[in-house]
Each structure stands twice: as structure tokens, then as C-alpha cells.
């Protein structure tokens, strides 16, 4: 029994020692990639943890107010502060997801084009950024700790990009938002009832054809 334990721990130690050395053993390209990839994951995890902490704090002060342990004035002040912080973090998360996803979709489309894709696919490719942006939102909200999956998850949805809901421009600040968004993530304006841009885009494309 104890022998098995010793063997187990020896194997564990050796495997971990190998892992310790591994980032320094590859070529310079691999080492660079290692630094960049890890960095992206790190930021998402970091922001998610902080967001969760602020959400917990918000819940705490709600209860304190209910129990008369926090004066209304203090509650409002704290709530505002926590909300501001939470929104700021969520916005950073959005940008991180959105920005990178957008770029990779554009890259994919370009690669496909340069590989000899037909001209007819151009509209489809141009619609992809729209989709990629949409596919990120639920990920951020649901389990943002699972960021790794984000790039994989967006792939299958690429195929039905045309059928996906498209974008609207915020009437207040002009930020591009998903058509099903109720509020603008930048300025908080109400977006309910706005007509999606993609409808008009699609109409224009079909008219051109």
C-alpha cells in the first residue's frame, strides 16, 4: 500500500518536473506562442474572478439594506460603485472576447478567400464577423471561466452565420450591438424595438445581385 503511494508520488514529481521545464525546451517561436496564448487566458480568468467578487458584494449590500444594517444613502453609494466596477470589468471582458474573435473570423475569411473560395461566398464571409460577435456574449455570461472553449465554440456557428440575428447601431452612442440586445453595453440606452442593420444589409446585397 505504502509502496504504491511512494511510486505514485515519484511519478507525480517526475511529471511535474518535466512540465516545469517544458516551456523552456521548445524553439523560440513556440516559447513566444506560449507566452501569448497563456496571457489571453489569464486576462479572461482574472476579469471573471473580479466580476464574480463584485456580484457577491452587490448581493451582500442588498441583504444588508433589507435588514436595516445599511442606510439608504450608503446603499446607493456602494451600489453605484460596485455596479460601475462590474460594468467596467464586463466591458473589458466583452472587448477581449469580441476583439479577438472578430479578428480571427476576418482572418479565417481571408484565408478561405485566398485559398480560392468562390466570389459568391463573399457576402457570407462578410456576415461572419456579425456572428462571431454574437456567439461570444452568452459565453461571457454563462461560464466565462471556460474561455478556452470560446474559439472552438464559435466555429460550428460559422456555418449558419447567415441565419443569425445581426447588428443594430445604438441610437445614442453609435456602438454596434447585437439585434437582440435590450440595452447598449456602452451607454446603457434602451435598444428594444430597433431594426437590425443586417436586414437592410441583406436587402442591399440581394438587390445588387
Amino acid at each position: 500500500m505504502t509502496i504504491a503511494l511512494i511510486i505514485l508520488f515519484v511519478c507525480f514529481t517526475l511529471a511535474m518536473a518535466w512540465q516545469t521545464l517544458s516551456p523552456f525546451l521548445g524553439g523560440s517561436q513556440e516559447q513566444l506562442r506560449f507566452d501569448l496564448l497563456e496571457d489571453e487566458l489569464r486576462q479572461v480568468e482574472e476579469l471573471t474572478t473580479r466580476k464574480n467578487l463584485y456580484l457577491d458584494n452587490l448581493r451582500e449590500i442588498e441583504i444588508d439594506r433589507e435588514l436595516d444594517k445599511l442606510a439608504e444613502k450608503d446603499y446607493v453609494e456602494l451600489k453605484r460603485r460596485y455596479e460601475r466596477e462590474t460594468v467596467r470589468i464586463m466591458r473589458e471582458l466583452d472587448d477581449l472576447h469580441g476583439g479577438r474573435g472578430w479578428e480571427s473570423r476576418v482572418e479565417d475569411a481571408l484565408t478561405e478567400l485566398s485559398a480560392g473560395g468562390s466570389r459568391a461566398r463573399l457576402p457570407e464571409a462578410s456576415a461572419k464577423p456579425t456572428e462571431s460577435k454574437k456567439s461570444k456574449k452568452p459565453k461571457t455570461d454563462k461560464a466565462s471561466t471556460k474561455k478556452k472553449k470560446s474559439s472552438k465554440a464559435s466555429k460550428p456557428s460559422q456555418d449558419n452565420a447567415v441565419t443569425s440575428p445581426s447588428l443594430v447601431d445604438c441610437p445614442e452612442c453609435g456602438k454596434e450591438m447585437e439585434a437582440n440586445a435590450k440595452f447598449c453595453s456602452e451607454c446603457g440606452a434602451n435598444l428594444v424595438g430597433l431594426k437590425p442593420l443586417a436586414d437592410t444589409d441583406d436587402a442591399q446585397i440581394s438587390a445588387a445581385e
Binding site: I6, F9, V10, F12, T13, M16, A17, Q19, T20, L21, S22, P23, F24, Q31, F34, D35, L36, L37, E38, D39, R42
Partner: peptide, 21 residues
């Protein structure tokens, strides 16, 4: 540097593993 962050994490596992041995 993420390489060093990774290495520091696994170095702590390695040290602990040896202590467990």
C-alpha cells in the same frame, strides 16, 4: 512572463511531490 509563471506553478507541484515522497 507566462513561461516563468507556468514554470513556477509546476515547480511548486514538483517540490511538493518530492516532499510527499
Amino acid at each position: 512572463s507566462q513561461r516563468f509563471v507556468h514554470a513556477s506553478r509546476f515547480a511548486s507541484y514538483t517540490g511538493a511531490g518530492a516532499i510527499f515522497v
